[in-house]
Design a protein around this nucleic acid. Structure first.
Lengths: 213, 213
DNA sequence: TCATCAAGTTAGCATCTCTAACATATGTTA
DNA sequence: TAACATATGTTAGAGATGCTAACTTGATGA
């Protein structure tokens, strides 16, 4: 698929928007713009992203996005939200088949977390390291909490706690901090320099054990 | 001090530049622009920073910076480098008076790391979470390695290892990941929500113990 | 059928980065 | 000391961008 090809998704599923806005002129410009934004953020980096270029890629005028998004920031937020949904779903499916209450479940979540950072570094940066100064969007906040909740549930089972106790929250916070930092470092350094030295899975296992012991 | 006051530092010390460029028209425009950049990055956030505004604050035309920096990115890099020097010096002075080979030294470094992230979130973001897509400057890389070296030295002493062995590197990497992630999370959430729940120093102590045991 | 409204368009303003051409201070050298 | 070379600044302007206003078009439903 050529990178300059216009984007015309048939149906907007990921946006979670009213089906009523589905097919006017473009088909689903909102979804197309989100996809163009996602591509550009990965190709050029979040800082070099421009609305104009997304418009060119979606094959519409530069004024068109403003019928769907308040401004550039909202466009990025929508794109990040879409990414977070994918991220969460990946984490959940990574848990399938892994024994309940085992530390491997924690490790699996961590692997998926790091994988997302490495596979979609642009979105990852927008989501986390990103533009807190530009956005304090409650939807991003909430979406993050949901993902954190998945981890906490697993930690509770691992520790044999009855629910999300203070201790669970504390351990979860420590684990999250570690995996979060690891993701950033690996993403920044590139897998070559740091990931080559250590086996990622072994690293995450060791951490899970040290933290949950 | 008014935020619109012009910046006229008497002597450029932090830039580490040839003294020959000290006093032409402005005094030391290079240093003044770095300071203006630093202020703006903290006030408006790294994404909203503009060269024009830095010029206004330094009281020069918008073309003036290009006599000192190749482009906007180089201006930001110079500002981040200056911040990294300050950061490293703070870490080093945090070690003074703390017993050699104690885990408190590790904790002290961690505290300083987190403090920098919280006190200078804009620079911290540019330095790390920041604009890897825009910059892969070798000077930033090297400066980061130097800071990491400080940590590794302390880890080696803590573990009683003869030098920077593979095991030291591994533990140091784990510790760094954790503190790095913690800094990001605390910075993003704001101290209120997360830092309120846990005592930062205690958290870092616990981590140091779990990691170095 | 036709009025309404959603979703596009074009035109244009304000701002931004960066360059070219010009102006001036400084320090050097004949 | 006069003239030159260079560092450092200025003004003017090209090209890109974010966003708005005003207009056009096409789908939907009374």
């Amino acid at each position: 698929m050529s990178s300059t090809e216009k984007i015309h998704p048939s149906i907007s599923q990921a946006t979670g928007h009213a089906v009523s806005k589905k097919a006017y002129h473009h088909g689903d410009l909102r979804a197309a713009l989100i996809e163009a934004t996602r591509q550009l953020v990965e190709e050029k980096g979040p800082d070099s992203f421009s609305v104009s270029e997304a418009c060119r890629r979606a094959g519409v005028s530069t004024a068109a996005p403003y019928k769907h998004f308040k401004d550039k920031t909202e466009m990025l937020v929508a794109t990040v939200l879409e990414g977070m949904v994918r991220h969460r779903n990946k984490m959940l499916s990574a848990l399938e088949g892994v024994p309940e209450g085992s530390t491997e479940r924690i490790t699996a979540i961590g692997m998926e977390y790091v994988a997302f950072a490495l596979n979609e570094p642009g979105i990852f940066r927008l989501k986390f390291g990103g533009f807190t100064d530009r956005i304090a969007d409650p939807r991003l906040e909430e979406s993050g909490q949901q993902s954190f909740g998945i981890l906490l549930t697993e930690v509770a089972k691992c520790l044999g706690e009855p629910g999300i106790t203070d201790e669970v929250r504390r351990r979860g916070f420590l684990l999250w901090s570690f995996v979060h930092g690891l993701s950033f470092i690996l993403r920044d350094k590139g897998l070559a320099e740091k990931g080559g030295d250590f086996e990622l899975y072994a690293l995450l296992e060791e951490i899970a054990e040290r933290m949950l012991r």
